[in-house]
Amino acid sequence: MRALFVASPMVGHVQPLLPLAIALRDAGHDVVLATGPEGLAAGRSSGLDVRDVAPGLRVMPVFMGQALAHPLQARRAAAGEEREPSFVGVLFSALGARMADGVVRLADEWRPDIVVQEALAAVGALAAVRRGVPLVVVNMTFFDAERLFAVTAARLGGVARRHGLVHLPEPAEVLGTAPPSLVGSRRGRPMRFVPVPGDGAAPADLTRPGARPRIIVSRSTVADPRPDRLMSRVVEAAAGMDVEIVLARPDKHVSRGPLPANVRTTEWLPFPAVFPAAAATVHHGGAGTILTALAAGIPQLVTPGAGDRAVNAELVAARGVGLAIPTEQITPADLRRLVGDPALKQASRDVADEIAGMPAPAELVEPLAALAR
């Protein structure tokens, strides 16, 4: 079987596809991953055959252009007020339109038997319908996968017609990585979330529990030139506390200033290697970071924010595996609860067990091969 994987050119969108792609490759199938420049390194770190289908594409200018073209939607999304993923469809369909020619060209040259895409890379559907093969959607978010696919695909009609295609197909299968206890029952097959560490080894001491509870603080992998108030707020709240604060990839505004003795900074950290030894994490609310913390069984403090981050934070709090607190409202009491509340710890361990019980990517190889026959 020849499987074409398609991902938006962002680390957090490439990585969730890698465990399944690797499982197919290791089972003897041919796999190619199509993405853009900002996703290439994440894909190639796994040893997969990765193709750049949109040379020169930069994500942030595309997103900023769409925000300027749709200012009201953009403001609502930035404030976390969108309960449905409408503006995300605007953003990712614009990315997909710029990837379309390369994806279709690759599909025509490589002739896949099946196309696997992440939910927001609806451009993968162009390749599937072009080749007349099944489309599989891997959902790495907490939104409904078919809704995400629909809002993105709906804006690619013009691109489809330009390639001589009348419509984009519905997914033949959906694979969901979100634990049902957070999002409820959904159509499709569950697939265990397998964290991808990426390149680089973790500092040895961070892979072991320390003398004090350790809180790892991270921010989005999406580049943002603005000061990061999340990290500076945690530093302020943790001053004088008997905890160890680790700031992963702090921006220059934080790292240039004086830091308390219980705070240290690091470069990129492989979270799958360091989360199990931590007491908790504080982060921006990205789905990948949430799932990595859940798989490690540690409580998390999530700051509601733009896009899906408000919904993600609510789900974490509702399940009892963490706290949802706006950045400027984080207090020392919140950090003490984060590392000391037995209920948060138990709920986090329960969800880790739930994730471990979901089918591994390798268990889905044969069903996908059967779908492609």
Rank of each mutant, 00 (worst) to 15 (best):
L91Q: 01
F92M: 02
F92R: 01
S93Q: 14
S93A: 15
S93V: 00
S93W: 02
S93R: 03
A94E: 13
A94N: 14
A94S: 15
A94F: 14
L95G: 01
L95P: 00
L95F: 04
G96W: 11
G96M: 10
G96Q: 09
G96R: 06
A97N: 10
A97K: 09
R98Q: 15
A100F: 11
A100G: 07
A100R: 09
A100H: 12
D101Y: 04
D101L: 08
G102S: 00
G102D: 01
V103S: 06
V103F: 13
V103T: 13
V103E: 10
V103W: 12
V104P: 05
R105N: 13
R105C: 08
L106M: 13
L106F: 13
L106N: 14
L106P: 15
L106D: 11
L106H: 15
L106V: 12
L106A: 08
A107G: 14
A107M: 10
A107S: 14
A107L: 10
A107R: 12
A107E: 09
D108N: 15
D108H: 14
D108C: 08
E109F: 04
E109I: 05
E109Y: 07
W110E: 07
W110F: 12
W110K: 09
R111D: 15
R111Q: 15
R111T: 14
R111V: 13
R111S: 15
P112C: 12
P112E: 09
P112D: 07
D113E: 13
D113C: 12
D113M: 09
D113F: 07
D113A: 11
D113W: 12
I114Q: 08
I114A: 04
V115T: 10
V115R: 09
V116P: 01
V116C: 01
V116R: 01
V116F: 04
V116A: 03
V116Q: 02
Q117I: 04
E118G: 05
E118I: 02
E118C: 04
E118D: 06
E118N: 11
A119D: 04
A119H: 07
A119E: 14
A119S: 14
L120G: 02
L120Y: 07
L120N: 05
A121C: 09
A121P: 04
A122E: 03
A122W: 00
A122C: 02
A122Y: 01
A122L: 00
A122T: 00
V123S: 02
V123K: 02
V123D: 03
V123C: 01
G124C: 00
G124F: 03
G124Y: 05
A125V: 02
A125L: 03
A125N: 05
A125K: 05
L126I: 07
L126N: 11
A127M: 04
A127R: 06
A127I: 06
A127C: 08
